[in-house]
């Protein structure tokens, strides 16, 4: 993935117990600039968050790398550069 095309903010919640990852992610999403992508690192898929993020106007893509930490990228529905980069 080409990280130069869009600005990415990392949020590592892999050491937190539920629902702290959810609360932190919602806080980050609420203040996320339109042209920035949130990269959430978690040990499992945050299913409840997906629908909330959708209702807040975000799209997401989940990536499972080999290291076991799941990466979930969230971006504003209006952010076309991010959509082009992550919705492949």
């Amino acid at each position: 993935m080409d990280g130069c095309r869009v600005k990415i903010i990392d949020l590592d919640v892999s050491d937190l117990e539920p629902p702290e990852p959810y609360s932190l992610a919602v806080q980050c999403l609420a203040t996320l600039p339109d042209d920035v992508v949130l990269n959430m690192m978690h040990r499992q898929e945050p299913f409840p968050l997906y629908q909330t993020a959708d209702e807040m106007g975000f799209l997401h893509q989940t990536i499972y790398p080999a290291d076991g930490v799941i990466h979930i990228y969230f971006w504003h529905k209006s952010n076309r550069a991010a959509a082009n980069q992550f919705s492949k």
Binding site: Y22, S23, P48, M56
Partner: peptide, 25 residues
């Protein structure tokens, strides 16, 4: 607490201010 938080955040329907006011676990 997990179940109640899950349902209470669903009631907020994506409203950040409402989610922010939810009690902590």
């Amino acid at each position: 607490p997990f179940l109640s938080y899950l349902h209470m955040q669903r009631f907020c329907a994506g409203n950040f201010e409402a989610i922010k006011s939810l009690p902590h676990m």
